[in-house]
Computed example of a mutant assay.
Amino acid sequence: MGRKAKHHYIPKCYLKGFTNGGESSSPFWAVPINNDKPFPTSPNDACAQRDYYTVDHKNSLIVEDFYAEKIEPKISAAISYINVHSCLPPKEEMRCLILLLATLYLRVPSHRENLEMPMRRTKEIVESMSQDINISNKSEFDYSKTDLIQAELRLIDTVQECLSNKFYQLFIVEDESLNVITSDNPFIISHPKDGKGFYFGLNTSNIEICVPITSKAILIARNEKMKEGAFTATKELIGLTNTKLVLSASRFFYSNTEEILLGDDNISVHKHNISTNKAMHPTSG
């Protein structure tokens, strides 16, 4: 048996909730955001990169195995609870749901790029300075992919603690003809005053976190107190969530149907065909 080289940064146990079959091999549509033609794929092949979690260690797959064996079973338990009960999980399973959120926030390539940015910039500055002066500890500013992965692992508990202090609402899609999509970057933070260059983080006031849990469930979180519980997802919420996912995707978004519901600036919704890339008729109610 060959070495496991293809590593998922979005867990397969999460992605399969956006397929029709509910299995890792079940098909769904991958839609490139660069307007290339959509193509069928499966969770087995989506949101994965070669050697994404290979580290400098005698067991180079120790982190990949940690996520697969320790983290993903807990994530699956939270998703299964929501699938069965259509409500927010109780305390123990809620911890697993928060672990899912932390995973979707921390493990994507864009977050790794954010971790690397200051390290890379510091190294560039040191390299530039070393052309004029002798820097004896220059090697201390070097870093590797292993360093980035270690930084990610150190953040897991911190992010979970932060997420555990928020207020949550779960919205269930009851209309069988409608579905929520997901993407390769499904943890969405938005802000009422969001604009170009505006910075916000997990603890910024008035942010809203929006994460699709399955094709039939959307999770909303806020720092400010709100009524928690489970509610019916409106077409407007589904369309807005899908639009946010399309806009936040790094390379692909994923759908189990060719027609998806999208929203516009006026909070009106319409169906969009991903194959023809054309808007369909508007919907109401």
Rank of each mutant, 00 (worst) to 15 (best):
G2S: 15
G2L: 12
R3V: 08
R3E: 13
Y14Q: 01
Y14R: 04
L15I: 05
L15W: 00
K16N: 08
E23G: 15
W29A: 01
A30G: 10
I33L: 04
N35Y: 09
D36A: 15
F39N: 06
T41C: 11
C47N: 04
R50C: 09
R50Y: 06
R50P: 02
T54Q: 13
D56G: 06
D56F: 07
K58V: 04
K58W: 09
S60Y: 12
S60K: 13
E64R: 01
Y67M: 04
E72D: 11
K74M: 04
S80Y: 09
N83T: 12
V84K: 15
H85R: 13
C87N: 15
L88V: 11
P89V: 08
P89G: 09
P90Q: 15
E92H: 15
E92S: 15
E92A: 12
C96L: 10
I98A: 09
T103E: 00
L104V: 07
Y105F: 15
R107A: 05
V108N: 01
S110V: 15
H111L: 09
L115A: 10
E116Q: 11
E116A: 09
R121Q: 15
T122L: 09
E124L: 09
I125D: 14
V126W: 04
M129I: 08
M129G: 02
S130Y: 05
D132V: 10
N134A: 13
S136D: 03
N137H: 10
K138S: 14
Y143N: 06
Y143K: 05
Y143E: 03
K145W: 04
R154S: 15
L155N: 14
I156K: 05
T158A: 15
V159F: 10
C162R: 04
S164P: 04
Y168M: 14
L170N: 03
F171A: 07
I172S: 06
V173C: 14
E176F: 07
E176P: 05
E176R: 08
S177P: 02
V180C: 15
I181P: 01
I181T: 02
I181N: 00
T182D: 08
D184K: 06
P186R: 00
P192H: 07
P192E: 12
K193C: 08
K196C: 11
F198V: 14
Y199H: 11
F200G: 04
G201R: 07
N206G: 11
I207E: 03
I209K: 03
C210E: 10
C210P: 07
P212Y: 01
I213V: 11
T214E: 07
K216V: 07
K216C: 08
L219M: 06
I220D: 08
A221K: 01
R222F: 06
N223R: 06
E228G: 12
K235I: 04
L237D: 03
I238Q: 00
T243D: 00
T243R: 00
V246M: 06
L247P: 10
S250K: 10
F253N: 00
T257W: 02
E259C: 06
I260L: 00
L262P: 02
L262G: 02
D265K: 06
D265C: 11
I267C: 07
S268G: 15
S268K: 13
S268T: 14
V269F: 03
I274L: 13
T276W: 11
T276P: 12
K278D: 11
K278H: 14
K278Q: 12
K278T: 12
S284L: 10
